[in-house]
């Protein structure tokens, strides 16, 4: 154990050595119609105890990014083409896949979007939770069962001692996601990736699950990558945010900074389309157009066809992810007109 583990979970992490550092990660999928670059030269850092929210619409590459981090990109169609995934000082992509597999569960863990299809329908939930102790820690059957019950109690499943022998389909959606969370946290991983953990759930249950995640994160002093399309949902939890569009990072920075000073038209569009965040009397303005077809990307900036700020420069070249003028170094946006967008936001 190193000293960073005793950092308070909510405190600003030491920027010197991130737990996870991804550089220029590119993930491609071969389809019959051509090759899709689902994740395109994405870089990110997550420090110990930090929560990074990865935001974007369906098809923005969030899930493929998560799969790549866990070594779960489904081959042979999908593959990590280039980049580095440094976890705790080791480049996972330079190691065989089995190396990442061994880290899964113990160091890295994941909670998936749809808890019903993500749980094995023919195995009792206690077996699915207890399996981590049995297979990874050599626990006996009885011990694994006891630990499964403990975990189910901790994640707030009532009558855990009885429900440990039930099957996934006998649980409600929220309870199933609690089972998934219990499974992910069983071996106390240092980094949890939650891929749209509340999307498949009722609104009332969403808040409970988010609260549970936040509590457990503080309790275990974990780092968290929270993948979502919902800017409102992550507002109370995330330290930093990263917005993705068509496989590229379009804006990233401290949550407060990004939400106050929107520097990318896409972020602005997302913000304006959320009730509540747009302000009580403001009209909701959806982003016009639809997410791009990854097989037929526009020239230059990928957001250009849907963007009100677009000019010839946006057609000519793809903008780099650069520090936002007037903002702190950590706040970056990939927009030729970032300064204009910020100024427009301040005046409007």
């Amino acid at each position: 154990m190193d000293g960073t583990a005793i950092l308070p979970a909510t405190g600003r992490p030491a920027p010197s050595r991130p737990l996870l550092s991804v550089q220029d990660l590119t993930v491609q999928f071969g389809t019959r119609a051509g090759t899709i670059t689902a994740v395109d030269r994405v870089s990110l850092d997550v420090a110990e105890g930090e929560t990074l929210a990865v935001l974007g619409e369906t098809g923005s590459g969030k899930s493929a990014l998560a799969q790549a981090l866990m070594g779960l990109v489904p081959g042979p169609a999908g593959r990590v083409v280039s980049g580095r995934i440094n976890y705790d000082g080791t480049d996972l992509l330079a190691r065989p896949r089995s190396y990442t597999r061994r880290l899964c569960g113990t160091e890295l863990a994941m909670v998936f979007q749809d808890p019903l299809s993500s749980l094995n329908p023919v195995l009792r939930v206690g077996v699915q939770i207890g399996e981590l102790f049995r297979r990874r820690r050599g626990a006996s059957r009885a011990e694994a069962r006891r630990k499964a019950i403990e975990l189910m109690e901790r994640v707030g499943i009532p009558a855990a001692a009885r429900r440990v022998d039930d099957y996934p389909h006998q649980f409600s959606g929220g309870m199933r996601q609690r089972v998934m969370i219990a499974m992910a946290l069983a071996l106390r991983p240092r980094l949890l990736i939650a891929d749209e953990p509340t999307t498949a759930l009722d609104v009332t249950v969403q808040a409970q699950i988010m609260q549970l995640l936040a509590d457990l994160k503080a309790e275990h002093r974990m780092s968290l990558i929270l993948i979502s399309h919902d800017l409102g949902l992550v507002a109370g939890v995330a330290d930093r945010v990263m917005l993705m569009y068509a496989g590229r990072v379009v804006e990233t920075g401290e949550l407060r900074e990004v939400y106050q000073t929107l520097a990318h038209p896409y972020t602005r569009g997302l913000m304006a389309s959320i009730p509540g965040l747009a302000g009580p009397r403001e009209r909701l303005t959806p982003i016009t157009g639809s997410p791009p077809d990854l097989l037929r990307l526009p020239s230059g900036c990928r957001f250009r066809p849907r963007c009100g700020f677009a000019t010839e420069a946006c057609r000519a070249s793809q903008p780099d992810l650069l520090p936002v003028p007037t903002g702190p170094e950590s706040h970056r946006a990939a927009c030729h007109h970032a300064e204009e967008v910020v100024a427009d936001g301040r005046s409007g």
């Binding site: 799969q67 779960l72 489904p74 061994r102 899964c104 998936f112 299809s117 399996e131 297979r135 990874r136």
Partner: peptide
Amino acid sequence: HENYIQTARAKGLP
């Protein structure tokens, strides 16, 4: 290709 197989892999099972 089912999601629960991905889950099993994410648990680090061989």
